[in-house]
Design a protein around this nucleic acid. Structure first.
Length: 680
RNA sequence: GGCUACGUAGCUCAGUUGGUUAGAGCAUCGCACUCAUAAUGCGGGGGUCACUAGUUCGAUUCUAGUCGUAGCUACCA
């Protein structure tokens, strides 16, 4: 059995049900869809499935905030996701959900198997708990003061100011970002998957060619660090599946998400009377292929194959990892309007444009792909319209007007046409290796050749000579056959254009028919097959994206307002607490703007008794001429922990008041104060 | 800080298992053509292949370092 005869089970990563699909998601789905469409073209049996990933704390909390049930929220999101992928012509055999009976059944059955075989352990761990909300807090829902540098409002796992990493229990003045309550430490029994038992299996598996080389190197690093047991349980309240045999333990969302692949497949196969367990049986020759982004490699290359192996099931055959999408060379940015939702894109452009553009840059590697907006317009117009479609457009008219649409009975120059069929294998290999850009390069160079053929033969000249009518038809038949071949090559990428072209040529465009010339048949009158795009539409799309974000952020602004109100009435402190702050007067010895920084001024201060300190202060916006500050007195928090900053260590804090930006005013003392005087 | 990847024409990208004048598309300039969705063809200009050192008869391609960009780095996954 050759590899193209084996059935194929293909998935895309399950989009999380707390937000919209954006052009980053779409990259993966287009990549997979092209792959799948091509495999189907070769006649291969494919199950292409996806689903919404609907469990976990973020979903539970977001639904709470919206005042609806998680079920209601995910149903809404699912509808939207469905429409988005359909809009991009992604041909899923099934798009399902993780919050489904099928998923629960498979999760529980897999868990029980793993437990029976001794791969599940329990251990009591201490974790921060929100006493008001009555729930355990994931790290990123805890904020507080960094224990290393004293920066306020840092997340529970690391400090964005000094880069220190720590456990959330080390945070000072920690608070829950959900309720604002002070978290307490509480113990709980957790379930762990014993990943280290699978080390040998995983090492062998990762070397079996399932991953790109870069990714398998990455795994080496993880092996060197040592595999850890994986915490797969979460305590109630949690939106997910209850773990069998427990009252208040739930499967961690990342346990049930990949199982969602199987759930979606099961939902599909049940209707066909096929058992999903047969497909994942080790004896079954179905190949399992996952398309994922590089951010979730860890789950798919360690936990997922290990849990499958632990259950005695087949591990994935291929994990195809791709990079991120950047827009105009930068990360997608909400404020720049380059965070473009799938639905926003579809309001302005046809799916085919993006399918083509992405494909023209996809190479099967994990490099990021840049969505350059100018390049997008240029490439779509010049490749698809000016070159490819032009071939049909410039010759079809003659056939229709002069020959009633009937093509010549033979191919005039089979040798020349053979150049077009000659790249068939190379195009096939490119598709199979996901080197779509390579395929497109070859196809486009033939499109150039085809246009040159038409130019060289100048049918518009021959058309005027009544004695050369056969020659005219020959040339047009050649040109339309070149078009037929090229569009067939492109059909996995451009399904709509292919369909329109098949209708226009009144023939089937299949992989097997590539070498079979289209002769003696009638074509339909040519109509514009593809509409060119322009940069004004791009600008509109960007504007729309900015509007999307504004609409989304409106409620968040309210939240900020609420938080601000809290600031106005901070908790009272005792005089003892106040006395802990040592503030002193200091004389500015030198002051300069930090050139690489937008906000910072660097001060050199005299704190009396010959003590000098360097302090950075974020007041550049209000003091354009820092040198004018030299000689004046400022108030400094003397006993603030030093903070290492990008440009040096800041040894204290200079006090100022104001609302920000240009309205920042340094505090100072009246004349007579001396460097080092304490503020009483 | 450590690790990894990337850095080739104005833009987006190929390519080189080390070897004569480094490629494509778009953009730009000139010419031709007028069948075609102002599309096409021919020709020109444009690159010290990030920088520096090393290996080599020879490096854009190998090695090391530097700079820049991105990602990873947490008992997080």
């Amino acid at each position: 059995m050759t590899s193209t005869e084996k059935p194929l089970f293909v998935t895309c990563a399950l989009p999380y049900a707390n937000g919209s699909i954006h052009l980053g998601h779409i990259l993966e789905h287009i990549q997979a869809d092209i792959y799948v469409r091509f495999q189907r073209m070769l006649g291969r049996k494919v199950y292409f499935v996806c689903a919404d990933d609907q469990h976990g704390s973020p979903i539970m909390l977001k639904a709470q905030k919206m005042g609806i049930t998680p079920e209601a929220m995910i149903a809404e999101v699912e509808k939207e996701h469905h429409a988005d992928f359909a809009g991009f012509n992604i041909t899923y055999d099934n798009y399902y959900r993780t919050n489904s009976p099928e998923n629960q059944e498979i999760c529980c059955s897999m868990f029980n198997k793993l437990k029976e075989k001794g791969y599940i352990k329990t251990r009591t761990i201490s974790q921060l708990f929100d006493p008001e909300k009555n729930m355990f807090l994931p790290d990123r829902f805890v904020k507080g003061t960094c224990p290393k540098c004293g920066a306020a409002d840092q997340y529970g796992d690391n400090c964005e100011v000094c880069g220190a990493t720590y456990s959330p229990t080390e945070l000072k003045d920690a608070y829950s970002t959900i309720s604002g309550a002070k978290p307490v430490l509480r113990e709980s029994e957790h379930y762990f998957f014993d990943l280290p038992q699978f080390e040998e299996f995983l090492k062998t598996w990762t070397k079996s060619g399932v991953l790109q080389a870069e990714m398998s190197n990455k795994l080496q690093e993880w092996f060197e660090q040592g595999l850890q047991e994986w915490d797969i349980s979460r305590d109630a309240p949690y939106f997910g599946f209850k773990i069998p045999g427990t009252d208040d333990k739930y499967f961690y969302v990342w346990l049930d998400a990949p199982v969602g692949y199987l759930a979606s497949l099961k939902n599909l196969l049940d209707k066909q009377g096929i058992s999903v367990y047969d497909i994942i049986d080790k004896k079954n020759d179905t190949e399992i292929v996952h398309f994922i982004g590089k951010d979730i490699l860890y789950f798919h290359s360690l936990f997922w194959p290990a849990t499958m192996e632990g259950c005695g099931y087949k591990s994935p055959s291929k994990i195809f990892v791709h990079g991120y999408v950047t827009v105009n060379g930068a990360k997608m940015s909400k404020s720049k309007g380059t965070f473009i939702k799938a639905s926003t894109y579809l309001k302005h452009f046809n799916a085919e444009c993006l399918r083509y553009y992405y494909a023209s840059k996809m190479n099967g590697k994990i490099d990021d792909l840049d969505f350059n907006l100018e390049d997008f317009v240029a490439k779509v117009n010049s490749d698809i319209v000016n070159k490819i479609v032009n071939l049909a457009s410039r010759t079809a008219g003659f056939v229709t007007k002069k020959f009633n649409g009937r093509l010549a009975d033979t191919i005039a120059d089979p040798e020349f046409l053979a150049k077009f069929t000659a790249i068939k294998d190379s195009v096939r290999d490119a598709y199979l290796n996901r080197e779509y850009s390579h395929a497109i390069r070859e196809i486009m160079s033939l499109a150039d050749l085809a246009n040159k053929y038409v130019d060289d033969n100048a049918p518009w000249v021959i058309a005027k000579d009544e004695s050369k009518q056969k020659e005219l038809l020959d040339i047009c038949t050649m040109s339309l056959n070149m078009y037929r071949i090229l569009i067939t090559y492109l059909s996995p990428i451009l399904p709509e254009l292919t369909e329109k072209s098949a209708d226009f040529l009144a023939t089937d465009l299949s992989w097997d028919s590539i070498e079979t010339p289209l002769t003696g048949s009638e074509i339909k009158p040519f109509k514009a097959l593809f509409t060119r795009i322009d940069s004004k539409t791009v600008a509109q799309m960007i504007e729309d994206s900015k509007e999307d974000i504004k609409a989304e952020q409106a409620p968040k602004a309210e939240k900020k307002q609420a938080k601000k109100d809290d600031d106005e009435a901070p908790a009272q402190i005792t005089i003892d607490e106040f006395a802990k702050v040592d503030m002193r007067a200091a004389k500015v010895l030198a002051c300069e703007a930090v050139p690489e920084s937008k906000k910072l001024l660097r001060f050199e201060l005299d704190l009396g008794n010959g003590e000098k300190r360097q302090i950075f202060s974020g007041i550049k916006s209000a003091y354009q001429n820092p040198e004018e500050l030299v000689g004046r007195f400022v108030i400094v928090v003397y006993n603030l922990a030093p903070r290492k900053m990008k440009f040096g260590v800041s040894e204290g804090m200079i006090l100022s008041a104001g609302s920000g930006d240009k309205d920042i005013f340094l505090l100072s003392a009246d004349s007579g104060v001396k460097p080092g005087d304490r503020v009483m």
